[in-house]
Simulated assay, not measured.
Amino acid sequence: MEIIIKVNGRRIAEQIEPDLLLIDFLRKHGCYSVKRGCETANCGLCTVLMDNTPVLSCSVLAARADGHEIYTLEGLQEEASEFVGFIADQGADQCGFCNPGFVMNTIALLRENPDPTDDEIRAYLAGNLCRCSGYEGQLRGIRNFLDQRRK
């Protein structure tokens, strides 16, 4: 079957097998920030934005993305660069494996709610698995970014 997906602003038309997962389609097209973790939609490592909504690409067929716009971290570097340093300053990127999922969900959160409470941040990031930092560093980093932005 043929699908057409706009990935990071670039139109891609391709013949695919009906059971191809979106994560595999994206990685085939150079989006290596989209990581394979649990493959059960529980870790958030494969988070992408589909029409500006975070989705887990390991649980979405590429055929479902036909006609949609997908953004990965590769396409959102400028927006991500605004706050990733604040997260790094908190030591919240120890191994870095979970960072793309956290960054993608933080971008979606801040687009939806530019001034979230700590509880809203925690709720939005709850689906991201991090084995190193305990999540408090990410929360402090996002909070510091928001505080700095207000000044």
Rank of each mutant, 00 (worst) to 15 (best):
R150N: 12
R27Q: 02
E78R: 14
Q138C: 13
R27M: 04
P18A: 10
L129F: 13
D24T: 05
D89L: 04
E2W: 14
G137L: 01
D118T: 12
R150G: 07
A65Y: 04
G91Q: 06
D147W: 12
Q15F: 11
E79P: 06
G44D: 08
N128T: 01
R150H: 10
E17R: 13
E79V: 12
S81D: 15
C132H: 01
L45T: 09
L76R: 03
P54G: 01
M1D: 06
Q15A: 13
R131H: 11
R36I: 10
P54K: 02
D93P: 08
I3H: 03
N144D: 15
C31M: 12
A13I: 11
E17G: 08
T47N: 10
A13R: 15
L139Q: 10
R140G: 09
E136Y: 14
A41C: 13
A108S: 00
C31I: 00
L26R: 03
D115Q: 15
R122G: 01
G101D: 01
L26W: 02
Q94M: 15
R27H: 05
I16W: 01
G127C: 05
I5H: 08
L61F: 12
I70T: 02
T106R: 03
E79N: 06
E82F: 12
E2C: 09
D66N: 13
F97K: 08
P100E: 11
R111S: 00
A65D: 08
T106I: 15
Q138L: 15
R140N: 14
T72D: 04
E136N: 14
E112F: 07
G85L: 08
D24R: 08
N8I: 00
N113F: 03
L129T: 07
G30N: 06
L61Q: 05
A65H: 04
L139Y: 12
G9W: 10
T40M: 13
K151H: 10
L26I: 04
T40D: 13
R64A: 11
R10C: 10
T53G: 04
P114I: 03
G75P: 00
I12A: 00
R64P: 05
A123L: 08
